[in-house]
Amino acid sequence: MSSTRTPAPPTGGAGVRRSGRKFSVLTGQDRVVLGLMVGIPTFMVVFFVIIPMIASTILSFTQWNGIGGFAAIKFVGLQNYIDLVTVYIPFFPALTHNLIWLGFFLFIATPIGIFFAVLLDKEMRGTRFYQGALYLPVVLSLAIVGFIWQLQYAPEQGLINNVLGTTRQDNLISWLGDPSLNLWAVLVAASWRHVGYVMILYLAGLKSVDPTLKEAAAIDGAGEVDTFRRVVFPVMRPINIVILVITVIESLRAFDLAFIVNKGLNGLELLSTLVTNNIIGETSRIGFGSAIAVVLLVVSVGPILFYLTRALREDNP
């Protein structure tokens, strides 16, 4: 930590000092404080985000097994990317699954969470119990969520197959083993948690909406649905943006559940699991894994930039 601070203050300090000369508003202590406040976050972003990002991008043009230092790194140009799209069979399924994941969260899980929030906002009987029940999964780590759902989906011992009576050799449903089913099975598990998360955020937002707005809408003759669509939802814009961003981020960093189930194989390929499978392990392909990571980066940066610029623009008309 102490080393983190050393390089930082000079950068921040320089700018401050210049303006200080003009207006003499800032004391020396102010400069130090400002320098630290700007410098430490800048340092962290640069060293923990920007530099690794650049390093990954550079590594994606190389071949390296992670052993033997920089001398062992061999530049291979675009070969990793070419292999990725030509011989690496899991790549396109992974890309597709990431997009399905995003779509499922955006159009199914998140709306369900919002719906629950609106219902619970009605102060119906037992609302606290429902809140607790729906929010419980959010408190659990995804590792435990994965473990719980693996037990539900187990072929012979699992609850679901036993309830359905599909545990025999001839009618067995392999929830996690059938590649046409397992992505959806895992999405249900992921949504179980995501719905609660969205619900609690949205519920907090709904509580802060001025009730007179709803009353006014009701007096003007708007039904429940219209009130929500035309009055409440627009008023909630800041919360909506937060939820949108959270949903996109949660979808793109999807990893845990697929990896817990089967290391992201066999229908559960995601870009994040491919990166891991290539980079971590007995023998790693650092360059190839980095190339996949760069693809994931490009995919992630797109939506994030889009929403952030939109949000910032609309906030400052």
């Binding site: 995804l142 590792a143 990893f255 845990d256 990896f259 817990i260 290391k263 891991t276 499978n277 392990g281």
Partner: peptide, 9 residues
């Protein structure tokens, strides 16, 4: 990873 981090198990 969860396995994070743990891959290649």
């Amino acid at each position: 990873m969860a396995h994070s981090g743990v891959p290649r198990v």
